[in-house]
Amino acid sequence: MKQNRNGIVGSMAAVAVITSLGLAGCSTTAGVEVTGKTTWDEQGARSLEKNVQFNNSGLKGDIQIVDVKSIMAGDVMRVQATLRSKDNATLPFQYRFEWYDGGGMEINSGAGSWKPLILYGRESKTIQSVAPNPRAKEFKLKIREPD
């Protein structure tokens, strides 16, 4: 009886191991999504509405979005995000910026490429991007673990 129970526990553990192997081996998680939208108040002052969403609890333990800011270079929007590592080890990440116009339509849809980013232990680093053209009013920054 006791042996049988041990067997069940053993196979349950095996299933858990299989599941975790399968996930770790062949998937890249959605990671972190930071969105920002340029808005103007009645006085014409520009401000940035921002939102940070973690879709991966592992990544939430690794990095922190310290700050997101945006300025205009002429008529083109520029964005900078400050990231901080919460880990003591050197961690590799990838990030990508996507840009949207005032109507929420993506500009050059799917044209953005992932860029490598290395964060040393407890380091904070900034990543920047420039809008592809003056129509861009919103951006989405995606950060993930390397695929």
């Binding site: 299989i18 399968g22 490429s113 695929d147």
Partner: peptide
């Protein structure tokens, strides 16, 4: 022994070599 065989079979079938489209912006 059965559990180990199952691990082997599933991890192999999960990542079998196939042809597929990939992200043109991939940084791998």
């Amino acid at each position: 022994l059965f559990a180990m065989a199952a691990i082997g079979a599933i991890s192999l079938s999960g990542c079998a070599s196939t042809i597929q489209y990939d992200d043109a912006g991939s940084a791998k």
